[in-house]
Computed example of a mutant assay.
Amino acid sequence: MHTDTGVFGRSHELSSRRHEQVVFCEDDRTGLKAIIAIHSTTLGPALGGTRFYPYARESEALQDALRLSWGMTYKAAAAGVTLGGGKAVIIGDPAVDKTPELLAAYARFVETLGGRYITAGDVGTNTDDLDIIGRHTGYVTGRSTAAGGSGDSARLTALGVFNAMRAGAESVWGTASLAKRTVGVEGVGKVGRELIDLLLADGAEVCVSDVNDAALQLVSQCHPSVRLLSSVATAPVDVYAPCAMGGTLTTTSADAIEATLICGAANNQLANPLVEQALTERGITWIPDFVANAGGLIQVAGELRSAAPAEVESDVAGIFPRCRNIITAARAEGIGTGAAANRFAERRLDAIPRSI
Score class of each variant (00 low, 15 high):
residue 22 V to I: 15
residue 114 G to H: 05
residue 101 E to R: 14
residue 77 A to N: 04
residue 122 D to F: 06
residue 84 G to C: 09
residue 44 G to H: 10
residue 27 D to W: 06
residue 103 L to K: 10
residue 92 G to W: 13
residue 60 E to Q: 15
residue 26 E to W: 03
residue 138 G to C: 03
residue 107 A to D: 12
residue 46 A to H: 06
residue 67 R to Y: 10
residue 57 R to V: 00
residue 61 A to H: 11
residue 56 A to R: 10
residue 56 A to C: 02
residue 61 A to F: 14
residue 89 V to Q: 07
residue 103 L to I: 06
residue 93 D to A: 04
residue 101 E to K: 14
residue 53 Y to S: 03
residue 109 F to M: 06
residue 69 S to T: 14
residue 87 K to T: 10
residue 71 G to E: 12
residue 91 I to P: 00
residue 99 T to E: 04
residue 30 T to D: 02
residue 54 P to R: 08
residue 135 R to V: 01
residue 136 H to K: 01
residue 47 L to E: 13
residue 146 A to F: 07
residue 141 T to F: 00
residue 134 G to C: 03
residue 115 G to P: 00
residue 135 R to L: 13
residue 51 R to E: 01
residue 43 L to R: 15
residue 106 Y to E: 01
residue 135 R to Y: 07
residue 59 S to V: 14
residue 138 G to I: 03
residue 137 T to I: 07
residue 62 L to G: 05
residue 119 T to D: 08
residue 139 Y to Q: 11
residue 127 T to C: 12
residue 137 T to R: 02
residue 139 Y to S: 03
residue 134 G to N: 02
residue 80 G to E: 12
residue 50 T to A: 15
residue 120 A to V: 06
residue 115 G to N: 10
residue 111 E to K: 12
residue 36 I to Y: 05
residue 108 R to D: 14
residue 119 T to M: 09
